[in-house]
Design a protein around this nucleic acid. Structure first.
Length: 570
DNA sequence: GCCGTTTTCGGCCCGACTGTTTTCAGTCG
């Protein structure tokens, strides 16, 4: 999949162009890069199917960029990229990523002081050489040193599963500050992006200064990047950036809308506003400087002629067009799940007993669960030999007698290198539910992996392909296989694909979940819990489904038990 | 470079905070 590679080339080209003082082009390159990142299909596949013409259908990609992509796909090179990147030393472009430095300042440092690497920048700042430059002072030097620190710390993006509880806690604490009426997380976190770059919190308060003081003095804060009367930015001790913004009640909806984004979604909304002779900002919708609305999001959308759009859909992936036609999907609600079909216990690598898991699930209001411990080849995870599997099935029966919810007897069965399964059909037949999982061969070539998975899905006992791509966010690339082929085959076979809700997995991811449903697949949203505490991850998986336009009818574990059982009896 | 129910040319979202400014440019989201 070349999507990421091409996107990052465009980002890099945008940086260089910006440093050269070129106007607008950088925006165009970045927009195209974002668009390519959001693509559900591999871009080489798009090109193979429809050539340059298909590339130009991608929003933000026109004549020039499509031919650059074509050149790269054909030759593995992009001359324009090489030319641009060579025009500026690699370290200079890297300096753009230091917080507090942008294209203008970087160019001044390069041109006046010949600074062309992060190391040179650090020693120059420490030696006090920068404050002699026009536009730089002692403070700028400090900010650069701090920025270098932040960069070294690797303040990358954090997993939604980590940031979300933190954000909720901050919001809760901020709402206790005197004068505060409401505090709510916004930003990509509210859109439930799989990973987030920062934590944005919006506050309504009659005493903004109290909020600013409280926020910048929280014990989690490592350093304060900015502190104004209504807006502050801090870096937390674990490297996550957090912003708080205080607004008036009559702006809250507009602000929530604005700070929830995404950027591209907002740009289109503002264009719609302009066409209606209005102006949309975080303060509200205005007509000739006269306030129209802004108290809540719904009225902002309504005045723009749109139905309310759920935050998870606001990615400029067709939701505005769908909204205009009143054809938005009825995405699955957070309370729609009836049971969790993927969890582990002490029988393999889980922390709790079958009974503990069942009782915890019962407490959550589920109607059914599946216990799905590892098969024999997963030695590290204490996968079960056939003999122990029999014991395990008996134990499930015992627990079933003690609890009210239905417990399906299952296993997460290894897909071996040749695509065969880890248990014989005779064993698989005894299970209520069979999950097929690939845990190896991540470097295998595309054709081989596609064949391997297709063979596994040919087994008549398989019900769900779990964590289908095997990716770990920011840690491990997905398996390389023909997704459309696999999903179409699964659909035909009556096999569901999983959205694994484990924070580092979220696999299928949003775009692939959407694609899977388009291809006729059913989905199963599960937690892959290894402890009672993990059952709460379900929310994250549902969020990815919502981001993927998934409706309740397409999710097998949102169905009543009888309908699910019918599906499982292939 | 992209894009078009006001445009195939001339637009391209909008505002807060900071520092070094004597009124604003740069950076950020």
């Amino acid at each position: 999949m070349k999507n990421r590679e091409i996107a990052s080339m465009f980002y890099e080209m945008a940086d260089v162009l910006e440093m050269q003082g070129v106007d607008w082009k950088p925006n165009a390159f970045r927009k195209a890069a974002r668009s390519i990142e959001g693509l559900s299909a591999p871009i080489e596949q798009v090109y193979a199917k429809g050539g340059v013409k298909a590339l130009m259908e991608i929003p933000g990609i026109g004549q020039a960029l499509s031919s650059k992509i074509e050149e790269f796909l054909k030759t593995g090179k992009m001359r324009e990229f090489d030319k641009l990147v060579k025009s500026i030393p690699a370290g200079v472009e890297e300096m753009m990523h230091v917080p507090s430095l942008g294209p203008k300042k970087v160019m001044v440092l390069y041109k006046k002081l010949r600074i062309k690497s992060l190391a040179e920048l650090e020693s120059a700042a420490k030696a006090g050489k920068l404050n002699k430059l026009a536009g730089f002072g002692a403070k700028s030097e400090q900010h650069i040193l701090r920025g270098l620190g932040i960069l070294k710390q690797g303040a990358g993006r954090s997993l939604l599963g980590v940031a979300l509880p933190l954000a909720r806690e901050f919001a809760e604490r901020l709402s206790q500050v005197p004068g505060v009426k409401k505090a709510e997380p916004a930003g990509s976190l509210r859109r439930m992006n799989e990973s987030v770059g920062d934590i944005d919190i919006l506050v309504i308060s009659s005493k903004p200064e109290k909020v600013m003081d409280f926020f910048t003095n929280m014990p989690e804060v490592q350093s304060v990047l900015a502190k104004g009367p209504t807006k502050s930015t801090v870096i937390l001790k674990d490297g996550i950036q957090s912003d708080v913004r205080v607004l008036d009640e009559k702006s809250f909806g507009a602000a929530l809308q604005y700070f929830t984004g995404s950027k591209d979604h907002n740009i289109i909304l503002r264009q719609i506003a302009i066409k209606k002779g209005c102006k949309l900002s975080e303060y509200g919708l205005f007509k000739k400087d006269r306030y129209v609305c802004g108290r809540n999001e719904k009225e902002v959308y309504a005045k723009l002629g749109l139905p309310y759009i759920e935050p998870e859909l606001r990615e400029n992936q067709g939701e505005i067009e769908a909204a205009l036609k009143h054809k938005l999907p009825k995405i699955i609600p957070y309370d729609a799940i009836s049971g969790d079909l993927h969890m582990h216990t002490k029988w393999s690598d889980g922390l709790h007993t079958i009974e503990q898991m069942a009782r915890a699930a019962e407490k959550m209001g589920y109607k059914y669960i599946a216990i799905t411990d590892h098969s024999k080849s997963q030695h590290i995870a204490h996968g079960m030999e056939e003999k122990r599997l029999v014991q395990y099935l008996k134990e499930i029966d015992k627990v079933q007698d003690k609890v009210k919810i239905r417990i399906l007897k299952g296993s997460e069965v290894e897909v071996l290198a040749d695509g065969s399964l880890d248990y014989s059909d005779k064993i698989l037949k005894q299970l209520d539910i069979v999950l097929a999982a690939v845990h190896s061969g991540f470097k295998a070539p595309r054709l081989q992996t596609t064949k391997r998975i297709l063979k596994a899905l040919s087994n008549p006992h398989v019900n769900i392909l779990v964590h289908p791509t095997g990716r770990l966010i920011n840690q491990r690339d997905p398996l390389d296989f023909d997704f459309d082929k696999v999903a179409s085959f699964a659909a035909k076979q009556g096999i569901a694909l999983e959205i694994d809700s484990y924070p580092a997995r979220l696999d299928l991811k949003d775009a692939l979940a959407r694609r899977a449903v388009e291809l006729g697949c059913k989905l199963s949203i599960d937690t892959d819990s290894h402890a009672v505490d993990h059952l709460r991850f379900m929310e994250l998986g549902i969020a990815q489904a919502r981001r993927g336009w998934v409706e309740t009818k397409d999710v097998i574990n949102a169905w009543p038990l009888a309908k699910l059982e019918k599906f499982l009896c292939r």
